[in-house]
């Protein structure tokens, strides 16, 4: 079963008197275990697509199914539950709560999972261990570097053991070393834990490591690259399957 399935999805916004078509009849699927990058110029619809996948928004036309469920048919409560059980989110600016420690930030999504305080703490510690930040558990975000903050954000996305992690420009705020480290981490989690990653990015450093690249232009899905293997250092393979969608 596809994790996510776009069927002729269109998304329009009304900006004053002007109607903006952010996505225009997009057909697209995400399978479990995918490591997908959504790319394209600014305003091409990347964030809109991530918002739709994350059920933060609803299509204006077409059908969007997440875990086999048509999201237009779901109520707000069901959507909240779907988000909390299915997705983990990583943001460009990390979006950590500044008044909480790293461990508390990681444990935050667990408040929706009816766990005991001890269980929450244990799960948060495990997540921090997975991103090699266990010893920074008591640090506040302002005491961490950019790369460490993004790792905390990843740990927070992982802590609920989601099937799909959505990341919006996850390396945009990081230097090269941290960006590469982050990519390695995500790839490791993808390969070892089978976590599906979908992220929007312009970053070539990241694009070299993905299994699929989805390119958007003016709201239309123009190109996908299927990368069957990757080089040792993350450069793209020569064997690509390129085709025009629209």
């Amino acid at each position: 079963m596809n994790l996510v399935e776009f069927a002729s999805v269109t998304k329009r916004y009304q900006l004053g008197d002007v109607e903006v078509v952010a996505l225009n009849g997009v057909d697209f699927q995400i399978q479990p275990g995918d490591f997908v990058a959504i790319t394209g110029p600014s305003g091409s619809g990347k964030t809109t697509m991530l918002n739709l996948i994350g059920c933060l928004d609803a299509p204006s036309a077409g059908e969007l199914r997440v875990m086999g469920k048509t999201i237009e048919a779901l109520g707000e409560q069901a959507l909240d539950q779907l988000r909390s059980r299915t997705f983990g989110m990583i943001f460009q600016n990390f979006n950590l709560i500044p008044v909480l420690t790293a461990e508390e930030n990681v444990a935050l999504p667990l408040h929706l999972h009816n766990l005991s305080r001890q269980d929450m703490r244990q799960r948060a510690t495990e997540a921090l261990r997975a991103v090699d930040l266990e010893r920074f558990a008591t640090f506040r975000p302002d005491q961490l570097s950019g790369g460490q903050r993004q790792r905390v954000a990843i740990a927070r996305a992982l802590v609920t053991r989601p099937q799909l992690i959505l990341a919006d420009e996850p390396t945009a705020s990081l230097d090269t070393a941290n960006a590469l480290s982050l990519v390695e981490l995500m790839k490791r989690l993808n390969s070892e834990q089978g976590v599906t990653f979908v992220f929007s990015t312009h970053d070539d450093r990241l694009l070299r490591h993905v299994s699929r690249i989805v390119e958007l232009r003016d709201g239309k899905l123009t190109v996908t690259h299927e990368q069957t293997k990757r080089t040792e250092h993350g450069s793209p393979s020569s064997q690509t399957n390129r085709y025009e969608v629209m």
Partner: peptide, 11 residues
């Protein structure tokens, strides 16, 4: 922060 919490599934 509110957007992040909504994205996490907080009602």
């Amino acid at each position: 922060e509110i957007g992040m919490l909504r994205a996490m599934g907080f009602s």
